[in-house]
């Protein structure tokens, strides 16, 4: 990673090359096709656009939250091909051809998903900012592990930060939600 070191030096000496290449490249915008919450969509995106940004700003799916934008908090978690990923840490072009589920895709026919219902019942949220990411992570966790216990829920939620609840009720909610998903 010598390149990274050189960049680091450039960063501090403020000797960035001018951003003109960016403008040239912007002329050839990639087109990507995704399935989002069951619906096929085709969008023009900048190569550098994050999946989180395309979902929120171009597809108007603002349920996916951006908390830190630095891969730490998990508010932006969505499912790509059924697996939870941080949408702020994935380029939209990398998701070309994939099946994406966001928090908006969980409720069916006006009825909350069992995990959403469990968060409501267990007071698993306060301000609600972390909740979409928590729920997307929790749904995948419950899908992958038929036998969840408190420790596996805590480990499974390591990448999701909540500044309000103190986590206790989130853990209760995930355990309850997982049970409801199985029944």
């Amino acid at each position: 990673m010598i390149v990274l070191k050189e960049r680091f030096v450039m960063y501090f000496r403020c000797t960035f090359p001018p951003a003109t290449p960016a403008l040239e490249f912007a002329a050839v915008m990639p087109v990507i096709s995704l399935t989002v919450n069951g619906n096929p969509v085709t969008v023009d995106v900048e190569a550098r656009a994050l999946l989180s940004r395309v979902l929120r700003d171009q597809l108007d799916l603002t349920g996916t939250h951006v908390g830190c934008d630095t891969s730490q908090c998990g508010a932006c978690v969505v499912h790509v091909d059924g697996k939870p990923v941080k949408s702020c840490t994935m380029l939209a072009v990398q998701a070309d051809g994939e099946n994406i589920t966001t928090i908006e895709g969980l409720a069916k026919d006006g009825k909350l998903h069992p995990m959403q219902e469990a968060f409501r019942e267990n007071h698993g949220l306060q301000c609600g900012f972390c909740t979409p990411g928590m729920i997307m992570t929790a749904v995948a966790l419950a899908d992958e592990n038929p036998e969840l216990d408190e420790m596996s829920v805590r480990k499974g939620l390591e990448g999701n930060l909540c500044r309000c609840t103190g986590y206790q009720n989130i853990i209760h909610a995930v355990l309850d939600g997982a049970k409801a998903m199985r029944s």
Partner: peptide
Amino acid sequence: DDGQYIAGGQTMVPVMKQRLAMPSDIIDLE
């Protein structure tokens, strides 16, 4: 001009966000 591979992007994307890397071309190995 200044190519860089990307794999999972879990380091590359944060590094590009911080402009510690500014490749002209990203080559996805996926």
